[in-house]
């Protein structure tokens, strides 16, 4: 199931890039925002239960993590959870992205 749902989310991205003037950067932003909105409406969690990594690995899954973390922290801390939840829930991914991004940039040179 991870294969099918993950593949289909990528197909939507491909169609957006091929049929509209959106650049890859626009598609990424759009996907994170839509993932966050779907998650807020409670529609993304069922997809995660169905597809597992097929729904969490594509970028809408990042939006989903941001929102579910926020909602969780609101449950715990009330209003101030709005400020803490998003980045707490995605901290591992973001720190990994910053650290590995930096290390790879130091180690390698672009080949063109």
């Amino acid at each position: 199931m991870a294969f099918v749902i993950g593949g289909l989310i990528c197909v939507i991205g491909q169609l957006l890039m091929d049929l509209t003037p959106l650049t890859p950067a626009h598609v990424l932003v759009l996907f994170v925002v839509s993932g966050a909105i779907l998650s807020g409406m409670g529609l993304y969690q069922p997809l995660v239960e169905l597809a597992g990594a097929g729904a969490t690995v594509p970028l809408p899954g990042f939006g989903h993590s941001l929102v579910s973390g926020t909602l969780e922290d609101i449950g715990k801390y009330g209003f101030w959870g709005i400020f803490s939840g998003a980045l707490r829930a995605t901290a591992t991914g973001l720190s990994a992205a910053i650290a590995f991004g930096f290390i790879m940039a130091v180690l390698f040179n672009p080949k063109g």
Partner: peptide, 12 residues
């Protein structure tokens, strides 16, 4: 194309 852009590996 999007197959390697949309997953989190594309984010990296």
């Amino acid at each position: 194309g999007a197959g390697s852009i949309v997953p989190i590996t594309g984010f990296a």
